[in-house]
Design a binder for these strands. Sequence first.
DNA 1: TCGTAAACGAGACGGTACGTCTCGTCTTCGA
DNA 2: TCGAAGACGAGACGTACCGTCTCGTTTACGA
Lengths: 203, 203, 203, 203
Amino acid sequence: MTTQRRTPQSARRSQATRHAILTAALELAGEVGYARLSIEGIAARAGAGKQTIYRWWPSKGAVLFDALLMLNEGQDEQSAELPDTGDLEADLKVVLQATVAELNDPRYSEPMRALAIEMLVDADLAAEFTERLDEPVKELKRRRLRSAQRAGQLAPDMDLDVALEMLWGPLRSRWLNRDGPLTTEFADTVVETALNGLRPRPS
Amino acid sequence: MTTQRRTPQSARRSQATRHAILTAALELAGEVGYARLSIEGIAARAGAGKQTIYRWWPSKGAVLFDALLMLNEGQDEQSAELPDTGDLEADLKVVLQATVAELNDPRYSEPMRALAIEMLVDADLAAEFTERLDEPVKELKRRRLRSAQRAGQLAPDMDLDVALEMLWGPLRSRWLNRDGPLTTEFADTVVETALNGLRPRPS
Amino acid sequence: MTTQRRTPQSARRSQATRHAILTAALELAGEVGYARLSIEGIAARAGAGKQTIYRWWPSKGAVLFDALLMLNEGQDEQSAELPDTGDLEADLKVVLQATVAELNDPRYSEPMRALAIEMLVDADLAAEFTERLDEPVKELKRRRLRSAQRAGQLAPDMDLDVALEMLWGPLRSRWLNRDGPLTTEFADTVVETALNGLRPRPS
Amino acid sequence: MTTQRRTPQSARRSQATRHAILTAALELAGEVGYARLSIEGIAARAGAGKQTIYRWWPSKGAVLFDALLMLNEGQDEQSAELPDTGDLEADLKVVLQATVAELNDPRYSEPMRALAIEMLVDADLAAEFTERLDEPVKELKRRRLRSAQRAGQLAPDMDLDVALEMLWGPLRSRWLNRDGPLTTEFADTVVETALNGLRPRPS
DNA sequence: TCGTAAACGAGACGGTACGTCTCGTCTTCGA
DNA sequence: TCGAAGACGAGACGTACCGTCTCGTTTACGA
């Protein structure tokens, strides 16, 4: 229902086929990686004709994108707000540790990583993703930081987008580059360092 | 000279052809991106036979990598050390602004971006790049931060790699994602924010 | 219909493309000769993909073979029998002169010669040709000779295949080797010599 | 000595290399066939540079031709005349059976067949071959037939070249086309048929 | 006897074509 | 009319040889 509103579909469209295609895309992305993922392969695995895919999606990136949306369906609305206990540092650590957990689950992580890389290449895909997933989530984060700012826990003239980058950037970077383990310790360190800065703090 | 030592070449090898191939690779990578870069296209643009490329490079990634090495040739040794005037913040701003300038020059930036993305996919390529370009530069940065640490300008227990991520990560992230302009103001803001932290500072 | 029976084809096969390929093959064979005829060139001239040729034909010889069959289509059935006026010598001269005329027409002769040579190299091609063109024609010739044998104009124990070789061999040989002009006089001489033998005849 | 006169060579030319090249050519022609015989392959097998081959021969056909000449060296002069016992039929049978034996020896026959086919394509090669090997042998045959003609064993107005074609054509044809076994029986039949003609002879 | 000029091995080079592969589009046909 | 099947145009892949062109290195002559 929700999906229908977002991407209006012909009444004729076979939901069974759509599901088979998205499932096949997810599986293949995990198995062979994005580069060797092909429309041809997805169609074969799904038992669908290639034209059926080309009719409904503009690129393999778009297929994978919808496939990941399908995985997330229903979850979005639940966590409509980030925790706000008043303790910014603690709240951020909780949220980042949830992110760490998600990025360590290969079922989500592998296709998502493939998609993230493809978005670096395909600007249309990136725009679509930003509008439908990234920006809403980012807004939640900004809301939490604004609350902290009002509570005097964040510098009053802080650029919130830079702050977001300081907090979530290192995680995303390690994940994309695969150049270090994604641990809760790392998440905690990042939160502390970002909040306190690199300089020594007068204690 | 340096290059010769690293990758010994047959005396027979035509340097003119080598240069034409690397130049063509850079141009094409900038024009069409890594995915649509082809050995065939490089050979055609360079006026070279395909076999000449296959003789000397194992993959298109390797060609582009050498091409970027060629761009950097000679520069490496000059800036063998990062500036160290004693004022960490000023020094970091100088260095990051140089990085900004480099990333805004499409001649360097476009092919480098293509390669950076490919490295996310191709682990071998990433390892090669890390060893030959990234790690040496990173070591220079670490050295500067260690010096600051000794001077009491950096928290004494700071993890330097996290610090590097705080300082250079945001720049790299904006560049890769193309999600904001790379300005000197941005670089300055990042340096200040990273050094001071997100919390308000007692003034 | 006739063609379908001979080489059963997928219902999906594009007849327009098939025709374009065979036409291009004939033209190119005439223009550049068999040796410099290439699948790549045929595909380009026909506006077809190379794979389409490789899908349906095993070699450039096979393409040219089909192209020549296409030229001959419809003619086959007309001359279903060789002339039989009762005068063997006269009938043979008529038939051989028709052969001479055909072999002197470069439109047929040049590609056919190329194909004849290729058949010396490619046994599969030769087998295909023998079955579909050569053997049927040879049977017509044998029939005429058998009729002559019954009429007492041929030695009763004559091996008809040797006789065929005596009559048509010299023509084919001159044609293949290009070592003499193919004239009606030559055809007549061959018929007379073969019939009468090399020895002097008691007159 | 003889060879030197025919194809004058620089005094500098390395006979060892020449021999290695011709031997390699023969071996490879036997192993992979003429079509897949390559200058590159010959040079590699012979331990020679490609330029050394291109310096002395215009084509792979020419190399193979010289290689076959090398095989025949010395034999030429021995059989300077065809047998002439006065019995034409018997003499011809002897000679044709010798030819049959030669054509059944794959050591000679396979490269020779490849060369014969190549001569159908390459007119220069054919001219060279005709001048140096074919025409001298043909003249021997004509001489024997003229002798028979004088003895009244051949029709006095017989065109000797047509007669040669009648006698040797069928053998060559079977050999080139591989369309029948080359037996002594076949040779005998051909001689008898050619001499007596196809018509019934008054006994 | 020693220089020198050629012939030589080696193999890089710009090319052509190979036969295979995969892509995204187009066509046919059965449900 | 939709979807499965798959032929099609397009074009890159990596390989094999082509014929030309240097490179040193023999090799054998003639000064």
